[in-house]
Computed example of a mutant assay.
Amino acid sequence: MIDLLPHLVNGLTLGLLFALIALGFMLILGLMEQINLAHGSLFALGAYFAFAIATPRLPLPPDMLKIWAGVPLGWRYTAAILIAPVLVAPFGVVIERLMRRTYGRDPLYGLLLTFGIAMVLEDLIRAVWGTRDYVLPVPRDISGGFLFLDLIWSRYRFWAAAFAIAAIAIVWLVVERTRFGAMVKAGAHDSEIVQALGIDLKKLRTGVFVFGTMLAALAGVILAPIWGIRPHMGVDAVVPAFLVIVLGGVGSFWGAVIAGLLVGMVVGLSGAYASEWSLLSMYLLLILVVTFRARGLFGKKSVLEA
Rank of each mutant, 00 (worst) to 15 (best):
L5Q: 00
P6R: 00
H7N: 06
L8F: 13
T13M: 12
G15K: 01
A22E: 02
L23I: 10
M26Y: 10
M26Q: 14
M26G: 11
I28N: 09
L29E: 12
L31C: 07
I35Y: 01
N36R: 06
H39T: 08
S41K: 07
L42K: 06
A50M: 07
A52L: 04
I53L: 12
A54V: 08
L58G: 09
P59W: 11
K66S: 14
K66R: 12
I67H: 10
I67F: 13
G70Q: 09
G74F: 05
G74T: 07
I81G: 05
P90W: 09
E96T: 05
R101Y: 03
Y103P: 07
R105M: 10
D106Q: 04
D106G: 05
G110H: 05
L111F: 15
F115W: 13
I117A: 09
L121I: 15
E122A: 11
D123S: 15
L124W: 14
L124D: 06
I125A: 11
V128F: 11
T131M: 06
R132F: 06
D133T: 11
Y134F: 14
Y134C: 03
Y134N: 04
V135T: 15
V138Y: 12
P139M: 09
R140W: 14
R140G: 12
G144E: 08
F146I: 08
F148L: 15
D150H: 14
L151V: 10
I152C: 03
S154M: 04
A161Q: 01
A162Y: 08
A167V: 15
W172K: 09
E176F: 14
H189W: 09
H189I: 13
S191T: 14
I193S: 13
V194D: 00
Q195P: 02
Q195E: 15
A196T: 07
L197W: 07
G198A: 10
D200K: 06
K202N: 11
L204V: 00
R205D: 01
T206S: 06
T206H: 01
G207I: 00
V208G: 01
V208H: 01
F209I: 06
F211M: 13
T213W: 04
L218F: 13
A219L: 03
G220H: 08
I222M: 04
P225A: 04
I226L: 14
G228H: 12
M233R: 08
V235P: 00
P240C: 06
V244P: 02
V246T: 05
G248Y: 00
W254Q: 02
V257P: 01
L261D: 07
L261W: 05
M265W: 08
V266H: 02
L269Y: 07
L269I: 10
S270M: 15
A272D: 02
A274P: 02
W277N: 04
L279F: 11
L286P: 08
I287T: 11
V289I: 14
F292I: 14
G296D: 08
G296A: 09
G299W: 07
K300V: 13
K301Y: 08
